[in-house]
């Protein structure tokens, strides 16, 4: 019978050093944080065409559930679930991140979805990934190298490989995530169009974050995720935003949309619907930035657009 014969061994380390020892000995373990993405996969049970022979469950490692903050950054353990993240971080986290978590909506899911898990799935299933990248979040990554357990802090954007998929070293683990606290001068826009679990091929997640200095932008960051395809982020694309002076007219907006579409087309093949949703997002961003530029106090001091 299947049962008993094919049951993966469950390891439940209590500390990170126990995790290191366990993962060293295990041949091909499946790292299990909240498990929401794993359990909702099509071939999860029974495991068909998979190489996993054991599961390392992170739920007993208390270090991964910590939360700390100071006046500049907030740091979360990777096992903090998204529901708690939204609650603890209500007055601290950037609103775009809270918006992204709330867009998942249902606490029955967010209580099982962890931050580390959300950032580790090869093809992102939530809007957390583009938002974290756009916010320049950093993650602590721990992985085996030459039989030693290393740890590194890297930018969240470095998790994305050239194919737009999230790539973590084998037996690697995200242990902590750091993100800047909410800042009044930061402008953020978030997009979630479609429903990942019911129609992933029609869905788009997007995040745009920038500093606004009167009518120009700096450190603009646009990140787009197309589930089933990949995540797109590009310095060239960001630099286009940084070079713009707001307000921009319809022509400028069209030209911007065209440039972004060209960038996306060079890497991914997406549906016309997804392109249309992306266009709507850019229009929304431009509209808001135009509004900010037109209502900035400096312009009230005698300057005019006529």
């Amino acid at each position: 019978m299947y049962e008993g014969v094919s049951s993966p061994i469950i390891h439940r380390p209590k500390t990170l050093s126990e995790f290191a020892q366990t993962s060293q000995k295990a041949t091909s373990p499946l790292i299990w944080s909240g498990g929401s993405s794993i359990m909702t996969g099509k071939n999860t049970y029974p495991l068909i065409n998979s190489n996993f022979d054991s599961i390392i469950y992170l739920g007993d490692i208390k270090e991964l559930e910590d939360f700390q903050r100071n006046d500049r950054i907030a740091e979360f353990g990777a096992m903090v679930n998204l529901y708690d993240l939204a609650n603890y971080g209500k007055n601290v986290l950037p609103s775009i991140l809270l918006e992204a978590i709330n867009s998942i909506g249902v606490s029955i899911i967010t209580k099982r979805a962890t931050l580390g898990g959300a950032l580790s799935i090869v093809n992102p299933v939530t809007s957390i990934v583009p938002v974290m990248i756009a916010l320049n979040a950093s993650v602590e990554l721990r992985y085996m190298k030459k039989k030693r357990f290393k740890n590194h802090w890297i930018q969240a954007s470095q998790l994305i490989d050239k194919n737009g998929q999230i790539s973590i070293p084998p037996k690697g683990l995200i242990t902590k995530v750091r993100v800047g606290v909410s800042d009044m001068s930061t402008f953020g826009k978030f997009l979630k169009a479609g429903s990942y679990n019911r129609s992933p091929e029609e869905t788009v997640f997007g995040a745009f974050v920038t500093h606004v200095n009167q009518n120009t932008l700096s450190q603009a960051h646009l990140v787009l995720t197309f589930p089933t395809v990949g995540t797109y982020t590009s310095r060239d694309m960001d630099n286009i935003f940084n070079s713009l002076k707001f307000p921009i007219g319809k022509d400028g907006e069209s030209s911007l949309i065209k440039s972004i579409s060209t960038f996306i087309d060079s890497s991914f093949s997406i549906l016309p619907l997804q392109k249309a949703l992306l266009e709507g997002f850019i229009e929304d961003i431009v509209g808001s930035l135009n509004e900010i530029a037109l209502t900035e106090p400096n312009y009230a001091k005698g300057e005019s657009y006529e």
Binding site: I9, T44, Y45, L47
Partner: peptide, 11 residues
């Protein structure tokens, strides 16, 4: 119960 460790509760 004697179960597969990763069997979903629903099943």
């Amino acid at each position: 119960l004697n179960l597969n460790s990763n069997k979903p509760l629903s099943l």
